[in-house]
Design a protein around this nucleic acid. Sequence first.
DNA 1: CGACTCCTGACA
DNA 2: TGTCAGGAGTCG
Length: 267
Amino acid sequence: MPELPEVEAAARIARRTAQGQVVKRVRVLHRAQRKGLSDRVAGSLSGERVGSIIRRGKYQALGLSSGRWLVVHFRMTGDWAVRRVGDTTPLDAHARVVIEFANGSALVLVDARALATVGVVAGAGDPFPRLGPEANGKDFTQAWLHNRLTGRRGAIKVALLDQTVVAGVGNIYASEALWRARIDPRVVASTLTRAQVAGVVRATKATIARALKGGGRYSQGTYEGRFAVYDREGEPCRRCRATIVRIVQAGRSTYYCPRCVTKEKRR
DNA sequence: CGACTCCTGACA
DNA sequence: TGTCAGGAGTCG
C-alpha cells in the first residue's frame, strides 16, 4: 500500500507493535528480501531494542539500540501484519519477513509481489535517499516546487512522482492532486505559472490530508466513491461529468478530466 | 530523458 | 498465454 497516507497508517501499526520491544529473531522468508537483509545481517538484529519508528515519504525506519536503522519500503504491495510468535495458524502465503519480539508479538512484512525492500543502515548516515519535503509538510511550498520544476522538460505528473521533488506522492495521488488543481498532467513542468504551482502544492496537500484522515487505506476503497479520476477511465468526472481519460506517462497510467483542464487554460 | 529490472497475482 | 499493476534504482 504505497503512498504517504498508507505508509503512515502502516507506521502506526509498527509503532504500536514494535516500539520499545526487543528483537528476538528476524526470519527472512523470500530470497528477494535477502538482498538487503542477508541471514548474517538479519541475525545481527537479535537483541536490538526498537526505539523510535519514523516515516519519510514512503519509507519507514525502525531505530535500533545499536544506533543502526532498519529501513523498509513497501514498493507496490507491501504491508504490515501483526501476529503472535506462538501462533500455530498458517502464516500468510505472502509473508516475506517476520520480526519476532521478546514479548511474543511479531511484525510481519506481507508483500505479494516481493518487491518490498528491507535493509539495515548505519546510524551515522541518513537512512533515506535524497528525499524532497514531505507532501503534507510545511517545507513543501510554492517556492520550493517552483524551484525544483525550473528547467524540467518532462510532464508535471512525472515530476510529482520524483521523490526528490516531493516525498510521498505516488501514481494515484499524483493524478488525484492534478485533477483537484485542474492542471493538465501533460504540461511541461517548467512552464507552469507561479499560480499554477501554488495550486499544485495546495491540491497535493489537500489530497494527502484527506487520505490521511480516511486512515490511508485506499486498497479497500474507503472513502466515498474511491477516487476522483484514478482508475476511472470512461467514467464521468465528478465535477463536470466529462469522460475521464487514461494516458501513459513514463510507463505509468495517468487519469485526468480533459474538460476541467481546458477550463483552466482559458483562465 | 526513456527503457529495463526486480517479483507475483489478477484478469482478459 | 499475455498484459498489466499503487515503486524506484540502474543503465544507456
